[in-house]
Write a protein that binds this DNA or RNA. Structure first.
Length: 533
RNA sequence: GCUGGGUUCGUAUAACGGUUAGUACUCAAGAUUCUCAAUCUUGCAAUAGGAGUUCGAUUCUCCUACCCAGUACCA
């Protein structure tokens, strides 16, 4: 989610200014390589409607490896650009702005442990670099020999001493930091013979003519290093502008949003379902039934606002409205409830035709492949306002497709839609298995000889007549019950219990008008047989 | 620890020195209906604390508290 939001803000900013949004794969940690991750990123962005102008060939969905007019800076995968970084790293060494370091990992580890033991922190910087094994301290011929005979070396940036770096951030404004608090960061790694993020990023941003870098807040502490690198390369005149986005925080408690939070609280943290290497699956917004428009809209408003009360934006509207000035400095706690609200709003905006198209596969998934589309459309019209997800149509109205007598065979539970709500702990607990497929608490409340007789007679009174609309049928039912001076609520709820399995849900006339009077009578008979024993 | 960033109702945010501190989500109540939703109405609820600057601070400055990030041959 956080990654998508960062990409989204980049996209909105770029598109608003007529710029290009570039996707570059920063895969310079060979140890953390995850198969499929690259494709996942492309697919996730594509689902959100965030289409890169450069870096990905959208026809094939692949990262571009060879330069073309549209993709002049290929390859866009950093692991395929290593000679470039190597050249620039050595250029820095030659200019005296970086140096070769030969300290072993174990040695550095030891120094860190020793410093920690005495309550200090070991930093590889201007204070310590002259006591360590590097091209600054070793005789030139020894350095040359080590470089020639081993690959056991790194390149470190020679951080200038006591210099206050003056920085600007599009969101945070002016920031300054003294270089004495910084260390001599590794630019070229011995471990996998690849550049670090810092080197590769600065080199690529320069080569690819990047004008704005919008990234997560975790990079803010690295900004002075990046400024110094631009300085060292002599690229300050074309240095991009930076914006550091605050992080997405977990809904409750402290800390940033993590995979575990979603699993624990039952909301997705991934745009698309993600299967980890160990086989565990994490929920995705797509698979959980969210519309991409709703997901993107929700994400955009998490840390940014248009300055007025508008909340619903299409991607194009976001491009128009977005401004860096209105991006929030503080981290934003993610609210899963609001995410659902957005989805509900988008669902309501969709036409009944479109929703029916989406609903048909849901019916098939519940073993109802041969439902008449016109019938499904009528159901959608009836339940649209009540649903948050397309899947809800089924949960709310499964009884419009199958009778309670079939519930078990289709894996339906009576009152499933209301059962999702948290139950008041003081409420009486009923054993639904005793009356299944009918809800025990409603059976106790409404089902008795008197009520069921009235319910049956009411439906029988409709037999043989035809009704042009549910409204017309509703009037007939009402006048029949009132004519007999029967209690409206009791008859209706008893009827609903027999028809749907529970005493809550759609209007009685709506249900009977859809399923038909003979079906209603048959359901009444089934309920009588099951409940009057 | 050090360095940097941050702090308005439970949550997301508005108010860029002058408002009864607004809006949305959530929650609660009422209206409505045959129930449940939906809808409508109403309500609950915030400027972290302390100094200063100012006629006046949510807004500017400083201190404290708390939160976040970085402190890797990870990004």
């Amino acid at each position: 989610m956080g990654g998508v939001r960062t990409a989204l803000y980049n996209y909105l900013f770029a598109k608003q200014r007529g710029g290009d949004f570039i996707l570059r794969i920063e895969d310079t940690d060979s140890h953390r390589f995850v198969p499929g991750a690259e494709q996942y990123i492309i697919e996730a962005l594509s689902w959100c409607g965030i289409i890169p102008d450069e870096g990905v060939d959208m026809a094939t969905g692949k990262v571009v490896e060879a330069p073309s007019e549209r993709h002049p800076h290929a390859p866009y995968r950093q692991s395929q650009r290593t000679p470039i970084y190597r050249k620039y790293a050595e250029q820095l060494v030659a200019a005296g702005k970086a140096y070769y370091a030969f300290d072993s990992a174990a040695d550095l580890e030891e120094r860190r442990a020793a410093a920690e033991a005495s309550g200090e922190t070991f930093i590889y910087n201007q204070k310590t670099r002259l006591q360590l094994r590097n091209s600054l301290t070793l005789p030139p011929e020894e350095t040359a020999r080590l470089l020639r005979e081993t690959t056991d070396w790194t390149i470190r940036f020679k951080m200038p001493e006591n210099t206050v770096v003056q920085m600007d951030d599009l969101i945070r404004g002016h920031i300054e930091m003294n270089t004495d608090t910084l260390d001599d960061k590794v630019l070229w790694k011995r471990a996998d013979e690849l550049p670090t993020y810092h080197l590769a990023n600065i080199v690529d941003d320069h080569l690819m003519e990047i004008t704005e870098v919008i990234r997560g807040e975790e990079w803010l502490p690295s900004l002075p290093l990046h400024y110094q690198l631009y300085e060292a390369f002599g690229w300050t005149d074309t240095m991009p502008r930076f914006a550091h986005l605050s992080l997405l925080l977990k809904p409750v408690g402290n800390g940033k949003l993590s995979k575990r939070d979603g699993d624990k609280m039952g909301f997705p943290v991934f745009p698309l379902q993600w299967i980890s290497a160990d086989g565990t699956a994490s929920h995705g917004y797509r698979e959980d039934g969210y519309f991409p428009e709703a997901f993107v809209n929700m994400l955009a408003l998490l840390g940014w606002n248009p300055g007025d009360d508008r909340e619903l934006f299409t991607l194009d509207e976001l491009v128009q409205a977005f401004s860096m000035e209105k991006v929030q400095k503080a981290g934003a706690k993610f609210n899963p409830e609001k995410a659902k609200w957005f989805n509900k709003e988008y669902l309501r905006q969709k036409s009944e035709e479109e929703l029916t198209d989406l609903f048909m596969p849901v019916l098939s998934a519940h073993n109802l492949a041969d439902v008449d589309r016109e019938y499904a459309l009528k159901v959608v019209t009836l339940v649209k306002e009540r649903a948050t997800f397309v899947e809800d149509f089924w949960t709310i109205a499964s009884y419009l497709f199958i009778a309670p007598s079939q519930f078990e065979a289709f894996g339906v539970k009576a009152g499933a839609a209301i059962a999702q709500k948290p139950v008041d702990p003081r409420a009486k607990v009923y054993d639904d298995t005793l009356t299944a497929p009918f809800l025990a608490k409603d059976v106790e409340k409404f089902w008795n000889a008197e009520n069921s007789a009235m319910a049956l007679e009411t439906v029988q009174s409709l037999s043989g007549k035809s009704f042009a609309s549910a409204q017309e049928m509703s009037e007939a039912i009402e006048s029949y019950i009132k004519g007999n001076e029967w209690p409206m609520g009791k008859v209706m709820n008893t009827l609903r219990l027999a028809l749907t399995g529970s005493a809550s849900g759609l209007g009685i006339a709506d249900i009977i008008h859809l399923v038909g009077i003979p079906e209603a009578l048959s359901r009444l008979a089934f309920a009588a047989e099951r409940l009057t024993a």
